[in-house]
Design a protein around this nucleic acid. Structure first.
Lengths: 338, 338
DNA sequence: TTGTATGCGTTATCAT
DNA sequence: ATGATAACGCATACAA
């Protein structure tokens, strides 16, 4: 396990030129004769030389690497976004450093530090603990927030789904299918994307003349669970031991929705006859649970695409082109639960 | 966006000592008086100095970063392994660079190069294209393969589930439930983990006096699909338009199994009455599909834990402690499909 | 067209 | 106990 890599210096010696010339040939900048170009390239070929990117980063003060801060890589929505970001970045020649913050403020901070110390050229914050806030960092490194609103939303670029409209059409779907008593299933945490979905929910109810109050909101506490689906199932089962008073449920994401489906079925009720359910995300689970879940699809490809464009523009200082706030359309996927 | 970070040199100047002393204080090695320690630490505090890890890596010829090569981060089994690896590595003070190879040989090679050029201290190859093979690399960097056998399996460390036993007990479960005509649903690719599951299948059949031949193997071609579940569903629907000749199906993973469930239901058959199905992985989907899928659970936590231990031992050259080949036990999860 | 020399921020060796 | 300095591998300003 000897890791002594050959350096530009040895290439220089072997090809009988200076390191400067070798560097010029490698990066194809500056001037050199076709002759020396061939000479150098041959040696590089022979020796299987690879440039040392650490040294290069130090010298250039940039790393060709981009960081991604993500709360939970095993969540399918996040995984999908990450996978697509990575694929775009690869094409652009960037390496991707993915950091799983596990929704911990300390981990987030620790990663921020090491990422910066590794001279990353840019950063995606796909989400974070409560509201992402790190102005001093943002002033030093190009940052694009995805899915969640940063605290300082004046200056930071934010790409997210049109959560408001998603919440609105989800609720309208329930209303159109005849639901009279609709509940919103929600997490305790108040992420900006969830807030917008909730606003869409309220506005849709209002528009259709429903009067609503706290009774329309069911908050799921996932604290003692490692699956929000199970948390939802248990909570609902406990709450509605005797009778379920709702005929329509809009869950803020598909995991919650599946928990609701499980609980409702266990209660002996029929979906969609007795109760209709709609979710959010178009998680793979929504397609194969029973009954198959109607949901609002987030376009992860488009989310990733726009985020990359924005970050690259930030990095290349094309400030004029950058939209501070992009809304990616969502889509209603009708399946069996409505 | 000015990214001029303060360096050790300025700390030295501000605290009236030399860079050498500052370095000593920071790393708490060598000797210095308590007095200067305080002086230096104060300045560091005031200036919010952070060490430049790129320079440090160059100097030390190590980066405190570890790479992970993974075929598809949006696959829940892989995502789970990665998430747990990352969490262990974080505790050990390592950064994690995750590379999604998308099962492309070129991408894998490209990543290998940049990872090495970034001076990673170690590498996990959670899987790869066909058989991972890169002897020259392995001779330079500590590598641990997970889930899939490397070509050169004499020298490389491999941690994987006990796929053989998993395949065996899955098949026995079907036999015990009375299945007489069992099919194995498999991918085209011949990954080592799949091979072992297949071997378990064959041996179980043989042990129980079944005679079997090519008819017992159904190969799913996922080429024109972006979901192996859909590929399976369509394939089976096409194959068994008129009648399904099997009463038991063992799918090499849960995605295939769910496709089988879908097809069987569409054919008007009942699970588990007419046909019994068993999968592999304990994918989240297996818990919420309909009927709920009996499956073989892979212990991703243990897989990750053992892999980390092995890699750290490799890095620290504790060669005596290292097992070349670890088998992590699997577990039968009985649900509704058997 | 090419070479020499300097510096990026660290750590480590060798003095003092 | 502390300081001066070399070296890690590279890119570039300046000379030639």
């Amino acid at each position: 396990m000897s890791r002594k890599n050959i350096s530009i210096k040895e290439i220089a010696k072997l090809s009988g030129v200076s390191v400067a010339t070798v560097s010029r040939v490698i990066n194809n900048n500056g001037r050199f004769s076709e002759d020396t170009r061939q000479k150098v390239l041959n040696i590089i070929e022979e020796t299987a030389y690879e440039t040392n990117n650490v040294a290069k980063s130090l010298r250039m003060n940039k790393s060709n690497a981009i960081g991604i801060l993500i709360p939970d890589i095993s969540n399918s929505f996040f995984a999908s976004v990450v996978q697509k970001l990575e694929s775009y970045l690869f094409i652009e020649g960037y390496s991707t450093i993915i950091c799983n913050t596990a929704r911990s403020k300390e981990k987030e901070l620790a990663y921020l530090k090491t990422l910066e110390s590794r001279m990353i050229d840019g950063l995606f914050v796909v989400s974070g603990v409560e509201e992402f806030e790190n102005e001093n960092l943002i002033n030093r490194i190009p940052v694009v927030c995805i899915d969640r609103k940063p605290k300082d939303n004046q200056t930071t670029v934010l790409i997210q789904s049109d959560n408001y409209t998603g919440g609105f059409i989800a609720t309208e779907r329930l209303i159109q299918r005849g639901c009279k008593n609709i509940a919103l299933l929600t997490h305790r945490e108040s992420i900006s994307s969830f807030k917008n979905r909730r606003k869409g929910f309220s506005d849709a109810l209002e528009k259709h003349g429903f009067d609503f109050n706290a009774k329309n909101f069911i908050e799921i506490n996932t604290a003692n669970y490692n699956s929000s689906t199970e948390a939802t199932k248990d909570t609902l089962l406990e709450m509605f031991k005797n009778n379920l008073t709702y005929d329509g449920i809009f869950a803020l994401n598909d995991k919650l929705a599946v928990g609701a489906i499980e609980a409702i079925s266990e209660l002996g009720l029929k979906i969609p006859k007795d109760v209709k359910v709609i979710g959010f995300d178009n998680d793979p689970i929504s397609k194969y649970c029973y009954p198959k879940l109607t949901t609002i699809k987030q376009d992860t490809s488009e989310l990733a695409r726009q985020s990359c464009i924005a970050l690259l523009n930030l990095i290349n200082k094309n400030h004029s082109i950058i939209e501070k706030h992009q809304l990616v359309p969502v889509e209603l996927i009708v399946r069996e639960t409505t």
